[in-house]
Amino acid sequence: MCDWENFGARLAFARARLADPDGEQMPPFQLLSEPGVTAAEQRSCSENWMRKCIAAATPDRERLNFRFSDAPFTKICLGYLSNDFHDHATALLLVEMLEAQDRSLFELTPIPTAKTMARRCGHGCGEPSIASATSARFRTSRRRRRFTPTASKF
């Protein structure tokens, strides 16, 4: 059941959290449901939240040591991470979006998770082991070059 007792104190609580950027932060999405929060407060909350997330991810970024080319790109490269690149309700929605993207502007890379990879054929080609209409649509909607994961410590 919803507890509406002390509901009026929620805004004061949220503002107290915002006043201390180094303290415990409130997730920005949660703040959206608080009546009376200004756009500036929402932005401050988002910036504080992301600052903490980036700081928490720094050790992993340094450990993974990703290197990116400085060569200019002619297209925006988009990667889609999902375990639903198969006959699944989410895939039926996603594949239409991928098909609608302008290939002259975007280069698409599907990045299947380990759960999805377990459903793939045993010889590592990356193709689904069961041919399906959805899988075929994913194959034709992706960019031509196959995704090849680089050496990762995950």
Rank of each mutant, 00 (worst) to 15 (best):
P35E: 11
P128G: 05
D87V: 11
M97A: 10
L108D: 06
D70F: 15
R142P: 00
E99D: 12
P59S: 11
S141E: 02
R43C: 11
F29A: 02
D60R: 13
E99N: 07
P72S: 09
D20Q: 08
F85N: 00
F85C: 04
R142H: 02
I54Q: 03
E5S: 12
L18E: 10
A56W: 05
S135P: 03
Q42A: 08
A56Q: 04
A40K: 12
T109H: 13
R139H: 05
P28M: 04
A9T: 10
A16R: 12
R15P: 02
P27Q: 08
S104P: 01
T74E: 10
C45K: 03
S69W: 06
A57M: 15
E34K: 01
K52M: 13
S82Q: 13
R143Y: 11
A133F: 14
E127G: 01
F13M: 11
D87H: 10
C2E: 04
I130E: 05
A131T: 14
F7W: 02
P59Q: 09
E41K: 14
L108W: 09
L11A: 14
G23F: 00
A118T: 03
R15H: 05
G36V: 15
C45P: 03
E96M: 09
T38I: 08
M26K: 04
Q101S: 01
A133W: 13
R15I: 09
G122T: 15
L78V: 15
F147L: 10
A133I: 14
C45I: 04
E96P: 00
W4T: 03
S129P: 01
D3Y: 11
G8V: 06
S152E: 14
A100T: 10
C121R: 11
Q101F: 09
G23T: 08
F147S: 06
P35A: 02
D84H: 14
R61E: 06
F147H: 12
P128E: 13
P21Y: 01
A91M: 14
C2R: 14
F73L: 04
M1R: 14
L32G: 02
E34W: 00
D70C: 12
F147G: 03
S82N: 12
S104H: 08
T116S: 08
F29K: 03
D102V: 07
D84C: 15
L32Q: 03
V95D: 01
A12L: 12
A12N: 10
L78A: 03
M117W: 01
